[in-house]
Design a protein around this nucleic acid. Structure first.
Length: 581
RNA sequence: GCUGCUGUGGCUCAGGGGUAGAGCACGUCCUUGGUAAGGACGGGGUCAUGGGUUCGAUUCCCAUCAGCAGCUCCA
């Protein structure tokens, strides 16, 4: 039943894309057609046309689409032989290209009014059924996603069965815009970017800094509890290290150019931490008895990302990975991965992320290592997922060339997915560096290397957190947990006593001592998204209390200072997502 | 990197071929207020950068840089 509905919706969206193409052809007959599928939430159509579509054109195209919908043209499916099909689309070079790639003898067209398009379908039966759509934006797209081919103009639209769904969708977009970490982050003093001095490089302000410290402390404590050891490694190394690791050949386009120190000596800013951990490993001889060795590092790396892909703190050029490398025997992969999965779930759920999408990527066409090892490792990853009772999807052939991997995407409160965690087996690096251990028989053997990250990057994870919480962090992550407001200046000494009590108990508190009205101070504290506001006046001073107001919830009552502190401490220590006082 | 759009005080934005304007923020003063903006005054901009057109450019044109929406890629 549900599936059927989805198919109908896809057909509807697909038809909307044909209406778009028809409209464009009516208004700009010289435009050549690319492809126009239904996608999540809507549709797009790619066009080849020299002149760019302007926002004004989009208006005209929309109006024409509405006309086509009003005309309620019947949509018919026409099947014909390939040679006849070529005749029909002789003026559409891109369509002809598609036609030539279809192996079947017969192909299908869909026709509505004067418009006909090579298309497998399905479609709804008439154009009048498309009622609730909106053209969203224009972008460029390469023909067949190939950057060496023609650049096409892609017009995106959204389309739903009901007006409510469309409205809901647009409202969600608005909501997402309001949560945009690029606006919110700087607005509430978390971070800034200074693109004129280097795009994609993040400056953590004191408020962002304290939240980062909380995250880092939690991360380190958790890792130490779970048998990891913390290491620190340099940010640069002689270029020969990167030749040895292979990064200079397979990762070069993402690396900053080397720094020339003197003739024949170049240093390279690190895009990854693994070679450094390998060097630590190689600095002593290892026995199978030591395994598994788990080394974790919050390692800051630099990658020269293409400028068009940079996005706030979500996609940057300098970032800190919550990296770890596990050295183990082949037979330990499964249990290690089970532990990593357990750690990932524990860690992410502490931040309020409890919905995941998990992907197991298998061997690609180009790979290093043996098929047998790949299969064993892949099986170990899969077994681990099964043991943890996790739902996953297999991404065939999507593994990295050096080994199979598990990727975990988290879902935020707007149901958007973000890839954070990754667990990757690596057959390449151990080989390239020739790392080894001594087995039970006193023979050398090659260990398995597992790379893994939970947050992926602190910058990116922080950006996701900002959007997920819309800046309203849970108490344990909030840069300022309590804002102390006085009704009049003469209560500032008492406010300072309260502040000292908070600090003694490691509660992050601030006093707003500005000469503003209480209303204004509350407004500012609310806009700063501080979870707890403590108001102090005559009554509170006399009774050693504070009047407590929760962010967005308003007054909750008057509490003894120690009482409030105890409550905050317990919320903080339990890393509670919701405040309840 | 590609296509399009954009670039005006810290922020949001208005303006426009004759050397710039609002709100917020900031500063000073008055006000000492009980749960989302008390009041007055004031400082602050080479209008992204570099060329060109022009008597004259922040405004028009070109290039560069950066941002935005996507494409491709990715933590």
């Amino acid at each position: 039943m549900k599936k059927n509905f989805e198919n109908n919706l896809d057909a509807l969206r697909h038809t909307a894309s044909h209406i778009l193409a028809q409209s464009v052809k009516r208004l700009y007959p010289d435009t050549k057609l690319g492809i126009g599928p239904a996608i999540e939430d809507g549709f797009y159509y790619d066009f080849f046309r020299k002149e760019p579509f302007t926002p004004d054109d989009i208006k005209k195209i929309t109006d024409e689409m509405k006309k086509i919908i009003k005309e309620d043209l019947k949509i018919e499916r026409i099947e014909c032989e390939k040679n006849k099909a070529a005749e029909i689309i002789k003026d559409e070079p891109l369509k002809l290209e598609i036609l030539s790639e279809i192996p079947d003898e017969k192909v299908s067209f869909y026709k509505q009014g004067e418009f006909i398009d090579l298309c497998a379908g399905p479609h709804v039966s008439s154009t009048g059924q498309v009622k609730h759509f909106k053209l969203m934006n224009i972008s460029s797209a390469y023909w067949k996603g190939n950057e060496n081919r023609e650049t096409l103009q892609r017009i995106y639209g959204v389309c739903f069965t009901t007006a409510e769904e469309l409205k809901e969708y647009l409202k969600n977009l608005e909501e997402a815009k309001k949560r945009d970490h690029r606006i919110l982050g700087p607005a509430i003093g978390l971070f800034s970017l200074h693109p004129e001095y280097g795009p994609g490089l993040v400056y953590w302000h004191p408020k962002g800094g304290i939240t980062r410290k909380v995250i880092e402390d939690f991360w380190k404590d958790t890792h130490l509890e779970r048998g990891y050891q913390i290491v620190y490694t340099p940010h640069i190394a002689d270029i020969s290290l990167w030749e040895k690791s292979g990064h200079l050949s397979f990762y070069k386009e993402n690396m900053y150019p080397p720094m020339n120190i003197e003739d024949g000596i170049s240093y390279q800013l690190k895009p990854m931490n693994c070679p450094f951990h390998i060097l630590i490993y190689q600095s002593t001889l290892h026995s199978y008895r030591e395994f598994p060795i788990r080394w974790a590092e919050l390692g800051t790396v630099y990658r020269y990302e293409k400028d068009g892909v940079l996005h706030g703190v979500l996609r940057v050029r300098g970032f800190t990975q919550d990296d770890a490398h596990i050295f183990c025997r082949p037979d330990q992969i499964e249990t290690e991965v089970v532990d990593v999965l357990d750690l990932v779930m524990y860690f992410l759920s502490s931040f309020g992320f409890s919905e995941y999408e998990i992907f197991l990527s298998t061997r690609p066409d180009k790979f290093v290592g043996t098929v047998e090892n790949w299969e064993k490792a892949t099986k170990a990853l899969e077994n681990a997922l099964i043991k943890k009772n996790l739902q996953y999807q297999i991404d065939p052939g999507e593994g990295v060339f050096y080994g199979p991997k598990i990727d975990i995407k988290i879902k935020d409160c707007l149901k958007r997915t973000w890839q954070c965690s990754t667990i990757q087996v690596d057959f390449n690096i151990p080989e390239r560096f020739g790392i080894k251990y001594v087995n039970q028989d006193n023979k050398f053997e090659r260990p398995i290397l597992i790379h893994r990250a939970i947050m992926g990057s602190l910058e990116r994870f922080f950006g996701i957190l900002i959007e997920h919480y819309s800046g309203n962090f849970p108490v344990w992550l909030s840069p300022v947990q309590v804002k102390i407001l006085t009704i009049a200046d003469r209560f500032i000494p008492y406010a300072e006593e309260v502040l000292i009590c908070c600090k003694k108990n490691k509660i992050r508190a601030e006093i707003d001592a500005s000469q503003e009205s209480l209303n204004k101070k509350i407004r500012f504290a609310e806009n700063e998204k501080i979870p707890i506001i403590a108001v102090i006046g005559e009554k509170e001073q006399l009774s050693n209390t504070v009047a407590v107001r929760l962010h967005k919830k308003g007054m909750v009552g008057v509490f003894l200072v120690e009482e409030l502190i105890e409550k905050i401490k317990s919320i903080d220590n339990a890393r509670k997502i919701e405040i309840d006082i």
